[in-house]
Amino acid sequence: MNFPVFKEGATIGVTAPSSGVPSALHDLVKLSCSRLQSRGFDVVCGETVWMQEKAKSAPAQVRANEFNAMMNNDAIDMIIPPWSGELLIEILEYIDFEQLPSKWILGYSDVSALLLAVTLKTGLATAHGTNLVDLRGEYSDETTAMWQVVLSTKTGESVLQHSSPKYQKEWKHAAPSPCIYHLTEPTYWKTVSGAKTNLQGRLLGGCIDIIRHLTGIPFGDVRHFQKHFIHQDPIVWYLENCELSTTDLRRSLVQMKLAGWFEHCSGILLGRSSANRPVEGYTAEDVYQELAEELRLPIVYDIDCGHVPPQMTFINGAYAEIEVDEGKGTVKQVFKP
């Protein structure tokens, strides 16, 4: 595994490999850039950031070219897209995976297809966490703010994160918060077993709506990754559901299982979701119970990951030690080569 080096005063490249930002919301990007600059970063925005038409910032080749250029620009130290979108998968065939230098890429949701593909194909660690526009607040909550601490971890070192005290149940755009999120509900991590749970392994994951589409294609070769980059260490999957009904969630998990993604796996973490809509009384908890019984693996759910903020920063390829007890969780990530 190759873990990028985070630099103080880094230059952040902002490109939109999925959706760009419509003109009515350009101020969100500008404010986010200004906040980062006030904290000592330089920020360079690509042209795709300011564009959006037909569910994407630009044609796939244009998006890929800008991403490749920023990755290979020595003056840019890391990449943070403005936010996610719908059609990032279109650019994967145009990414120059063989020439990617060691730089952090940070994001989530649709961007998780890029993150997971990069890590699986190259052994370069990538960061699943906050996007750019959610860094526009006067300050960040303690969970979100850990992105910089996590990315500053050096190879061979470790970093510890704790479950959030509270999470956001709903957006209140009419009453903006100085830290962006309205954290009102007590966080409670749960286990299918109901008991204290410990698990260890290499982290892989993302938004299940998105990364399920990597199964069976060259960008989702988990077996190759296990053999060539992590010395056959077990995998801990972290997954979050953006929009799937419980039946679609079940279909997606079964697809991943049949594709071999859960072979040599030591456990699964599932993020909070507002999309877990029951179908004829079939709930997300039913899905988790069935999966735990089929795989005979510990499953933890309602963790700080995904579209119900705040979320931890998970590093694809890091070795993690996770402990969950009485609703609280800790995630220790070791940047193990």
Score class of each variant (00 low, 15 high):
273 S>A: 10
19 S>P: 03
325 D>R: 03
40 G>V: 00
199 L>C: 11
207 C>V: 00
185 E>K: 12
166 K>T: 04
110 D>F: 02
168 Q>L: 09
45 C>G: 03
315 I>S: 08
223 R>I: 00
273 S>G: 11
99 Q>A: 12
16 A>F: 08
101 P>A: 03
116 L>G: 03
337 P>W: 07
296 R>G: 06
281 G>Y: 05
143 T>A: 06
106 L>E: 09
238 Y>W: 12
148 Q>H: 09
152 S>K: 06
228 H>Y: 15
316 N>E: 05
180 I>M: 10
130 T>W: 06
97 F>E: 06
154 K>G: 13
203 L>Y: 14
264 H>C: 07
87 L>A: 08
230 I>L: 10
99 Q>W: 05
36 L>T: 00
325 D>K: 06
213 H>N: 08
105 I>W: 04
64 A>V: 02
300 V>P: 12
332 K>C: 15
334 V>S: 15
246 T>C: 15
129 G>D: 14
169 K>Y: 15
322 I>T: 10
35 R>W: 13
263 E>L: 07
151 L>N: 07
122 T>C: 07
160 L>K: 13
53 E>C: 06
246 T>H: 10
49 V>F: 10
187 T>W: 07
251 R>V: 01
329 G>D: 08
110 D>G: 03
225 F>K: 00
30 K>P: 03
35 R>K: 15
27 D>Y: 13
180 I>H: 09
173 H>T: 02
228 H>Q: 14
291 L>G: 04
44 V>R: 10
257 K>C: 10
279 V>F: 08
286 D>K: 04
292 A>K: 04
174 A>M: 12
115 L>W: 11
125 A>Q: 08
139 Y>E: 09
98 E>T: 00
101 P>V: 02
8 E>A: 15
219 F>C: 05
123 G>W: 09
134 D>K: 06
148 Q>T: 01
131 N>C: 12
331 V>G: 10
121 K>T: 07
24 A>C: 02
160 L>A: 02
332 K>L: 14
30 K>H: 12
126 T>V: 01
176 P>Q: 05
86 E>F: 14
286 D>N: 12
150 V>N: 05
127 A>S: 14
255 Q>N: 09
239 L>E: 03
37 Q>I: 00
88 L>A: 07
294 E>K: 08
303 I>W: 04
54 K>P: 11
167 Y>K: 01
1 M>D: 13
174 A>I: 00
94 Y>L: 01
13 G>P: 00
84 S>R: 00
18 S>L: 01
231 H>D: 15
334 V>M: 08
304 D>H: 09
94 Y>S: 03
78 M>R: 04
13 G>V: 01
256 M>F: 05
199 L>T: 05
39 R>M: 09
10 A>C: 07
309 P>W: 11
324 V>F: 12
83 W>P: 05
255 Q>R: 09
263 E>D: 15
99 Q>I: 00
